[in-house]
Design a protein around this nucleic acid. Structure first.
Length: 279
DNA sequence: CACGCCTCCTGTGCGC
DNA sequence: TGCGCACAGGAGGCGT
């Protein structure tokens, strides 16, 4: 059987982590920081001495506002896992290796970032200065927020020439979408991932299904195949509700024909050739 | 600028 | 059984 080899934290997974972490981080001071000397993690050392004022999220980025007009930005990449433990026993779900960042808090807890593949990053920057993170600097609207309008989304999709799947993954038209929720939303909207210059009807359907799949996934605390864990080390629940992603070769849940796997924008895409037209 | 392609990185699962 | 290799993919960077 064909199984996805990993799951990547996208907006619902990062939002789940943010909700669990925020009440335990906000108001705490980082008393010391231990980081591995990789460029994508090294500047997290500068969090030491700062107080966490608020833990927010933009797309797949966690943004911790620190005192002194600084921000700690964390992106989990593919395999990043954040854990918060008492610093005595190993944090839940975190093995001893590949821990690149350890932040000791003033209540004795320790926040760790483990990331075997090291596609993630943890950086401290002056508040709002995202020159080191160009995707965050030009990030599109939050899909569940008021700035993500069907009209604006449709007009952007009509102007751009790239396949709609590439635009969803690009983070500029809308924030936080990765391969799993792109495939889910496209399947639900009956839009082919290879389609270009979508008209208003298909764009409008996609706008709605994006919000639907993300909101459902947040309620289920995210999708876990292997790597993603909540801060407590638990799996999400949404993997039991996926209708398209990872189901290549299995019957389409609408028409019963086998789902197809293709490559779009360098990524595996699963789709139904019968239900998802216009490519 | 928009677009497409390449690179990074390692655990996993498959074929031989 | 064990080895080697392809694959997974978000973001950054670069060439056209």
């Amino acid at each position: 059987m064909e199984l996805p080899s990993a799951s990547v934290p996208e907006l619902p997974e990062v939002e789940t982590i943010r909700r669990q972490l925020a009440p335990r981080l906000e108001g705490r001071r980082v008393v010391s920081a231990l980081v591995q000397p990789y460029p994508q993690f090294a500047s997290a050392e500068r969090a030491a001495g700062h107080r966490v004022e608020e833990l927010g999220r933009r797309g797949k980025y966690l943004v911790a506002r620190l005192d002194g007009h600084e921000e700690l930005i964390v992106h989990l990449g593919m395999t990043g896992v954040l854990s918060l433990g008492n610093g005595l026993a190993p944090p839940a779900g975190v093995g001893p290796s590949h821990v690149h960042v350890r932040l000791r808090l003033d209540d004795g807890c320790e926040l760790t970032l483990r990331d075997p593949r090291r596609f993630g990053r943890a950086v401290v920057v002056p508040a709002g200065d995202y020159r080191a993170l160009p995707t965050l600097a030009s990030l599109g609207p939050e899909p569940l927020g008021p700035d993500f309008s069907a009209r604006g989304f449709a007009s952007a999709l009509a102007r751009r020439n790239a396949p709609v799947k590439a635009l969803l993954l690009g983070q500029r038209l809308v924030a936080g979408i990765g391969n799993i929720y792109a495939d889910e939303a496209l399947w639900l909207a009956r839009v082919n991932p290879e389609a270009r210059r979508l008209g208003p009807r298909r764009a409008g359907r996609l706008h709605g299904t994006l919000r639907e799949v993300l909101a459902e996934a947040i309620l289920r605390r995210g999708t876990t195949f292997r790597d993603y864990r909540t801060v407590e080390g638990e799996s999400g629940q949404n993997q039991d509700h996926l209708r398209c992603y990872g189901r290549g070769g299995l019957p389409c849940l609408r028409c019963g024909r086998p789902l197809t796997t293709v490559t779009v924008a360098g990524r595996t895409s699963t789709l139904c050739r019968t239900c998802q037209r216009g490519g």
